[in-house]
Design a protein around this nucleic acid. Structure first.
Lengths: 137, 137
DNA sequence: CTTGAAGCTACAGCTGCTGTAGAGCCTAGA
DNA sequence: TCTAGGCTCTACAGCAGCTGTAGCTTCAAG
């Protein structure tokens, strides 16, 4: 059995965050000591590692809640987790596209002025003026 | 003079958000009517448009506060706004890189299983097991 | 048995808003 | 001039996903 601190050190998830996950229904402890402290089994540790990795992948707690509810459920679970992965992938690709548009525009804004202040600075204008944007956002 | 609702319609920024920006020190009204309602000048409208565009570019309210404080300040302001644009560009590029790493890994996870459940589903394992990751994150 | 680290609950705070309640204000049409 | 109803006011709670604090109790090593 592990204490919450041991789980924290093993996974890199902060103690307060573990308690938060518990509150959110993502993880449960096996029981409590006489003095009311949480004790976890290996399964708890595994689940926390799962959650952590899924969070690093950018999944929402909502999506993770669904995924952990799917563990050990066979074929139907497979289709559903596939759908979650697909949806998340679409979302990530969308975010990448939007960030790349921003990148192009920021380059344009930055290059609109050499930074020395000579000849009047246009950066502030460029920041403010949407009409100057090459693309749309 | 404009009411807060007119500013809202002109810029697409919600009324509550304008009041929030005021609270955050990004924008001020010219004065109030006898009945305590905010009235804005053209300068207020311009500033709100500036803020809106900067937000669309992904700048934090903190960065925007600095930028609006720089308006009409000449050479030094130019260097500082250049620095803000540069820092933000670096940040965006960093986020793009990290999202692309996530994208690669999500593709790997999705492709680890055909979604039919035949032969046992590995997606849940793939979500949970960091050791299987190709790259680092 | 003592001491200090670790744990407990409950709550406030972060960013950037959004939404609500319950007021009061403003203006166009009758 | 009155009135309807849209607009605005303040103040506060809530969203995600934590983080940090206060003030306490418990656990484990020496």
């Amino acid at each position: 059995m592990f204490s919450i601190g041991q789980l924290s050190r093993a996974t890199g998830v902060k103690v307060t965050t573990i308690r938060y996950y518990e509150q959110m229904g993502l993880i449960a402890h096996e029981g409590r000591t006489e003095g009311n402290q949480r004790r976890y089994s290996q399964a708890g540790l595994d689940r926390l590692a799962f959650i952590r990795h899924a969070r690093e992948l950018g999944l929402s707690l909502e999506a993770i809640r669904t995924l952990v509810g799917l563990e050990g459920k066979g074929g139907a679970a497979c289709a559903e987790s596939h759908a979650i992965a697909e949806a998340h992938l679409r979302d990530i690709r969308d975010r990448i596209r939007r960030l790349q548009a921003l990148e192009r525009e920021l380059v344009r804004i930055r290059d609109s002025c050499d930074g020395t202040g000579a000849g009047g600075c246009s950066i502030l204008t460029a920041f403010g003026d949407h009409d100057l944007c090459a693309g749309s956002h």
